[in-house]
C-alpha cells in the first residue's frame, strides 16, 4: 500500500492534484492511500510526497516556511530517506537554488538551477496551453511517456545548471527544462493533473516507484 501525501501549504489547486492521483491509482490498480496534509507526522509515515504549487515563487516558499518544521521534515524524508518526491509547476521550481521572480529568492536547492523569466515580447506570457515535452535524457522512469503534449501555465522556467538533471525539455521562444530529476526527486513544469490521459500516465509511473 502506497501512502501518498499531497503537501498542502495554502497555495495552488491542491484538490485537482489529489483527484488526479486518486483516479490514476484506481485506474492502474495501484493500491494507494492519498491524503492532503501539512502535518509533519503524515510526511514521516508517507511513502511518496507530492508538492503542488501555483502563483508566485516567493509566496509558495513563504507558504512552506510558515508551517513549523515542514522543510526539515521534507529534507529528512526526501534527501535522507530518499522517498519518491514529485514537484508540480511552482512545486518543481522550488527545487531550484534560487528564483528571480520579483526579486531574488532562495529555494530548496535540491537540484542545481535557477528560476528565470521566459523571454518577453516574442510570444504571449504567461505560456498557457498544451505544449510538447521532448525527452532529453533517455534513461529515466518517464522514458515511455513523453514526447506528448502537456498543459502548461507559467511565465518563469527552470534553468537547469547540470544537464544531467534534465529529463525533458519544451520550447516556448527558448528551450527550457520541463522535467527535471535527480535520484528520487522529480519535478515537472506542466500540470499532469490537467493533462488528461498523458498526465495520468506520468502520475502512474511516479506512483509505481
Amino acid at each position: 500500500m502506497k501512502d501518498i501525501i499531497v503537501l498542502d501549504y495554502g497555495l495552488g489547486n491542491i484538490k485537482s492534484v489529489y483527484q488526479a492521483i486518486k483516479k490514476t491509482a484506481f485506474e492502474n490498480k495501484i493500491s494507494a492511500k492519498v491524503k492532503i496534509s501539512n502535518n509533519v507526522s503524515d510526511l514521516d509515515s508517507s511513502s511518496h510526497i507530492v508538492l503542488p504549487g501555483q502563483g508566485a515563487f516567493k509566496s509558495c516558499m513563504d507558504g512552506l516556511k510558515s508551517i513549523p518544521g515542514i522543510i526539515d521534515t521534507l529534507k529528512q524524508n526526501v534527501l535522507v530517506q530518499k522517498k519518491p518526491f514529485f514537484g508540480i509547476c511552482v512545486g518543481m521550481q522550488l527545487l531550484a537554488k534560487q528564483s528571480y521572480e520579483n526579486g531574488k529568492h532562495e529555494g530548496l536547492g535540491w537540484i542545481d538551477g535557477e528560476i528565470l523569466k521566459l523571454p518577453e515580447k516574442k510570444l504571449k506570457l504567461p505560456h498557457i496551453g498544451w505544449n510538447e515535452v521532448i525527452l532529453t535524457n533517455p534513461k529515466n522512469i518517464f522514458e515511455n511517456f513523453i514526447n506528448n503534449d502537456y498543459y502548461f501555465v507559467h511565465s518563469y522556467y527552470f534553468n537547469c545548471k547540470d544537464k544531467n538533471n534534465e529529463i525533458a525539455k519544451t520550447n516556448y521562444v527558448i528551450d527550457f527544462s520541463s522535467i527535471v530529476g535527480k535520484e528520487n526527486i522529480y519535478g515537472v513544469q506542466f500540470h499532469p493533473e490537467k493533462s488528461s490521459d498523458q498526465g495520468q500516465a506520468i502520475i502512474s509511473k511516479f506512483l509505481s516507484l
Binding site: K23, K194, S196, G199
Partner: peptide, 8 residues
Amino acid sequence: TAENVFIP
C-alpha cells in the same frame, strides 16, 4: 466535474 475531468 473536477473529480472526473482532467483538463483545465
